[in-house]
Write a protein that binds this DNA or RNA. Structure first.
Lengths: 248, 248
DNA sequence: GCTTATCTGCTTGTCTGACAACCTGTGCGC
DNA sequence: GCGCACAGGTTGTCAGACAAGCAGATAAGC
């Protein structure tokens, strides 16, 4: 069998219902602060039992769209929708335009992160990076898979910024890109020299960060991400440069 | 009354339970892909009814921590925790270190966004920005509150990148910072000349973007955000520069 | 022996009805 | 007018039931 293929499962009622309610908010049929219909009304309106309605509302609560108060009702949360920023697999992150958009976000973030890292890195941050670079070099010689090391290297840079938010962002990014990773580090990638190129770019990033040269760090990171995007088949050499124009 | 004060409400059972289960995952008592105990077992273990257990699991599902399959059980989602990136009011975003971290994230993003906008802006993007700048100038003369215009201006820049993810990020940021906004545009801000300074910075950003000068756009945005951070009392002039060192 | 169909037990999905806890507004007594 | 108890409505929780889907064991057919 080629790959685990997820066929579309029959949608659950609570799921459908919560989506409908979310649409009510998006369509401004319910404004911020408005009270939702009572559970009983929703039951009758949608023809489902109260248990289903309650689960749907529990989902919305978890998403921050509504707040409920016993004896009073459920209310559309103030700032519903913008009270949290979220990127989600469901947004089509792993393919097509969604992937390109996320990757662009990563390019922005990572150049900034490299810049901050160059300004704030401690000696122990640097030795962590050196260690990872060494292990990646070993993997390069022995033609091994090394994408975990790749992730760890980028994570180490984020850690050097001393900003846990940025670390969390890189963790997320690693998980996302991993699921759509191009063969940079595997056998095919080695054959085409991609792994060696990526390794060179990593070393350039390390040198700039070690030197504390914020501008060089930014450029090295931007260049690395631009090259990675091209290896992924995104943003092929055509002039849609953005960061790239700066990176080269 | 001074301000809406949220007193701590008695926690709901489903809420407590979902937190407990989340801790199980964090503490590695449940690994990715593991099956959760059955609903009946959870009922007995925690001494609650099945309705509560189901609501708790519905919350976790909404958060992407578990997936359930009828007839099979509930499973810890692969990539639980990193399958989505989320920033949340609850993370202490509106005060103290959390605010500083979020603001730093915004600095990174916004300089990158300005850069992309300079590369991709269309004529209609520019006229939108000009319109907003004009209205801000009016507000400046008439000493009016103009923070919505401020948000709209930054949003217009994000829109010029043609990347909806970046627009969503700026929407989120606007909502966050608004709730902790310093008096830049109100009467006190005018007195201290803060509004005029912000307006100058905005104009510099516009000019760079209109010229298509990616580097100048980056620097203008970095400078604006750095100045805004100082107006907010964050990152006071002490050398913790990062972007700042580049921005000036 | 191997494949295929059926059965059985378990688990989640949904429904129903009930009671407790909580909030708001009304009307009563003072 | 003021405070208080009460009623009605709403969410929170519980208990029990049946339907739908799944995995593994068992039986039937070749």
């Amino acid at each position: 069998m080629p790959e685990c293929e997820h066929l579309p499962r029959p949608p659950r009622l609570a799921d459908t219902l919560s989506r409908s309610l979310q649409d009510w908010v998006r369509d401004r049929r319910l404004a911020e602060g408005d009270r939702l219909p009572t559970e009983k009304q929703l039951c009758e309106h949608f023809g489902v039992s109260r248990a289903v309605v309650r689960e749907a509302i529990a989902r919305l609560q978890a998403d921050g769209y509504v707040e409920t108060r016993q004896g009073l009702g459920a209310f559309v949360a103030v700032g519903a929708g913008v009270s949290r920023f979220r990127i989600d697999r469901a947004d089509g992150v792993t393919r097509g335009d969604g992937l390109r958009e996320v990757f662009e976000l990563r390019q922005l973030m990572e150049s900034g992160i490299a810049e901050l890292a160059a300004a704030r890195r401690s000696e122990s941050d640097l030795s962590e990076m050196r260690m990872l670079l060494g292990r990646m070099e070993e993997a390069l010689v022995e033609r091994q898979q090394a994408s975990e090391l790749d992730d760890a290297f980028h994570l180490a840079i984020a850690a050097a910024t001393r900003n846990p938010l940025l670390v969390r962002f890189m963790e997320f990014m690693g998980a996302q890109i991993q699921s759509s990773r191009v063969p940079t580090w595997d056998d095919e990638g080695h054959v085409r020299g991609l792994a060696a190129a990526a390794h060179d770019e990593h070393q350039a990033m390390y040198r700039a960060i070690a030197d504390g040269d914020v501008m060089a760090a930014r450029l090295a990171a931007a260049g690395h991400l631009q090259a990675a995007a091209e290896r992924l088949g995104l943003a092929p050499g055509e002039g849609r440069s953005g960061s790239g124009r700066v990176g080269r």
